[in-house]
Structure formats: structure tokens, C-alpha cells
């Protein structure tokens, strides 16, 4: 059984445009299949529909078309069961700042019907896990942003949900806090088999945290796969660079005779860049021949297109940027 399964998931918001009622399609025909204990990132720019997707999958919003199942439970039919089985870190951490960390967590624990006698130990266990034990009785408003975010993640996990949604877990944080929170998420994901669904607009975060990334833009999933698979999308843009101790123009001939496309020659760096169709098979042969012919080659490397480049290409090639002003009122 899949942890998250979406089929044609679609959400239209009612909006006012030029005084007229209109629809805004925030999530467009999304298909997702996420296995148990997978760490999946939904990556996309602001307004791409990540938060809306999360709210649909956590049974807060209802789909306009299509549907989804969490651990086999329908997000509409079995909404209440879905809610008990998922944890949600909302985009804004929004704790009750006047209440202490403990009070914040105990309150949510009761909303999830955790038995009375289990609440205190559960709260203390989580606070310990997040290294916040010495802050437990302080008002949450007095904590740093990073710590508050950790409390908010702890809150999302209070009922030990098998599927956890984290909506932009580090977006509002300074780099140091973001790093701490990221490490915490990695630690959690290794601790127990749990499914994580992370929304982010930060590519490096998606790459570091997750085993699989879905790229969303304008509500549509435009690419999906492991970071390696996504890189493979632009495999044909991999360039192989050879460097030599002494530059000689015959080097160029060597490659051209063998019908390799020469992409770049930098005599000052004594390097030549070529395109190789089947890197794994052809590279060893080339190296062998170069050495046989006594070319003083001292370096060979493949320059894969960066994930960032692929991501930007994908997102930008999708028509013009959409008006971001249509935020919720």
C-alpha cells in the first residue's frame, strides 16, 4: 500500500478578478505515488501549489476534481482517519507564543485524543529528541526562530503519525537555524520508518533531504525522480573535459577523427571539452588510446548539468511566470 497516492488531484479556488467571480487552478491534475518510509520533496517556486497540495493531502481542503489516498484512506471519505494518520508542519510555525512549549504540545496532544497518561511522557520524549528539554517550561514566544520551528515540528509529530508533511520547514529561518532544522529532519527520517512529504522552494534542501523529488510549477508536476534521475533528464548536456600537461593542436584532431563533437577548446588551460554519448562505455577506450599515443593527459572529468540548472530550465521553460499577486485575502 502506498503512503500517499493522488490521482488527478485538482483544486480550484474561487477568486475575484476584475470584480468578476473566477477560478484559480492552484493544483492541476496531480498524480503522486509515494511509498512508505520514502522522503519525498515537492519542489517548486512560490505560488506553484505546494501548500494547497499539502492541505488537500491532509484533508483540510477538499479537491475540486480527482482525489487522493493516505495509507489507503480517502482524503474525502475518511477525512477523520486521514487527519489522525498525518502530521502537518504548517507553513507559518504559529505556536501560541504566550503559552509554554509544554502547554503548546499538550494542547495539540489532546486534540489528537492521546490518552491522558501518555501525554506527559510523549511531550517530554519529543522535547528531548529535539534537544529542547531546558526550554520546555518557557513561553514559546521567547525562543529563537529555529527553536520555535523545532517545537512546531515536534507538534506535528505529537501523535506519532506515519506520514508527516512539512511545508517549507526552513524557509523562514536564518542559514544556521535552517541547518539545525535540516539536520533534525534527517535524524528523524533515519530514526524510524516514516514517510516524509516536504514542500520546499529550496533545491539544495530537496536534494539533501529527500530520496525523490517532484518538481511542481503552476500546479502541475513537471518532473519527478531521484536527484540522479533528474540529472539524467539532461544527460545529453554532460560534457567531458580532458586536460594535458602540454597543449598540442593534434589533440583536437584526435577527437575529431573519432567523430566526437568538440564543445570547447581552451589552449590556455590546455583543455578540451567534448560530448560523449555513452560515458560509461566510451570513456575508458578514449583514455586508453590517448595514453597509447603518448598524449600527456593528467585529468579527465565529466561535468554533469547541475540539478539547479535543470530545475531552473524546467520551471522557466514553462511559459511566462504567473501573476503572484493573487494571494489569499
Amino acid at each position: 500500500m502506498l503512503a500517499v497516492e493522488a490521482r488527478g488531484l485538482t483544486k480550484d479556488y474561487d477568486i475575484k478578478k476584475d470584480g468578476q467571480r473566477a477560478h484559480l487552478r492552484a493544483v492541476d491534475n496531480l498524480d503522486l505515488a509515494i511509498n512508505k518510509s520514502e522522503i519525498y520533496s515537492l519542489l517548486g517556486p512560490n505560488g506553484a501549489g505546494k501548500t494547497t497540495t499539502t492541505r488537500l493531502l491532509t484533508s483540510i481542503l477538499q479537491p475540486s476534481v480527482g482525489g487522493a489516498k493516505i495509507l489507503g484512506y480517502d482524503i474525502v471519505e475518511d477525512a477523520s482517519t486521514v487527519r489522525s494518520n498525518v502530521g502537518l508542519l504548517t507553513e507559518t510555525p504559529a505556536l501560541y507564543e504566550r503559552l509554554t512549549v509544554r502547554q503548546n504540545l499538550e494542547f495539540i496532544a489532546r486534540l489528537y485524543d492521546i490518552p491522558k497518561e501518555d501525554i506527559k511522557p510523549r511531550v517530554e520524549e519529543l522535547v528531548d529528541l529535539f534537544d529542547l528539554s531546558d526550554k520546555i517550561d518557557l513561553p514559546s514566544g521567547s525562543l529563537s526562530k529555529g527553536m520555535r520551528q523545532k517545537v512546531a515540528i515536534a507538534r506535528a509529530m505529537i501523535h506519532d503519525p506515519p506520514v508527516i508533511f512539512l511545508d517549507e520547514p526552513t524557509a523562514s529561518l536564518a542559514p544556521e537555524s535552517a541547518k539545525i532544522v535540516r539536520e533534525q529532519i534527517m535524524k528523524l527520517s533515519k530514526l524510524e520508518a516514516r514517510t516524509f512529504f516536504i514542500c520546499t522552494h529550496n533545491l539544495f534542501e530537496a536534494e539533501r533531504l529527500s530520496s525523490r523529488v517532484g518538481i511542481i510549477n503552476h500546479g502541475k508536476l513537471i518532473a519527478e525522480g531521484s536527484p540522479e534521475q533528474l540529472r539524467d533528464l539532461r544527460k545529453d548536456e554532460t560534457m567531458t573535459v580532458f586536460r594535458f600537461s602540454v597543449w598540442d593542436d593534434v589533440i583536437q584532431n584526435f577527437f575529431q577523427e573519432r567523430h566526437y563533437e568538440v564543445l570547447e577548446i581552451k589552449p590556455e588551460r590546455k583543455s578540451i571539452s567534448i560530448f560523449i554519448n555513452d560515458i560509461e562505455k566510451e570513456t575508458p577506450t578514449i583514455i586508453e588510446e590517448l595514453i597509447k599515443q603518448n598524449f600527456p593527459m593528467f585529468e579527465v572529468r565529466h561535468e554533469y548539468p547541475t540539478l539547479e540548472r535543470i530545475y531552473l530550465d524546467l520551471v522557466q521553460s514553462e511559459n511566462l511566470p504567473r501573476n503572484q499577486e493573487e494571494e489569499s485575502s
Partner: peptide, 11 residues
């Protein structure tokens, strides 16, 4: 204070 969403996410 945007605290409602966590409540709405609960059962």
C-alpha cells in the same frame, strides 16, 4: 496569529 491551521489539521 495563524494558529488555526494546526487545529484544523487535527481530527
Amino acid at each position: 496569529r495563524k494558529t488555526m491551521e494546526a487545529i484544523l489539521a487535527s481530527p
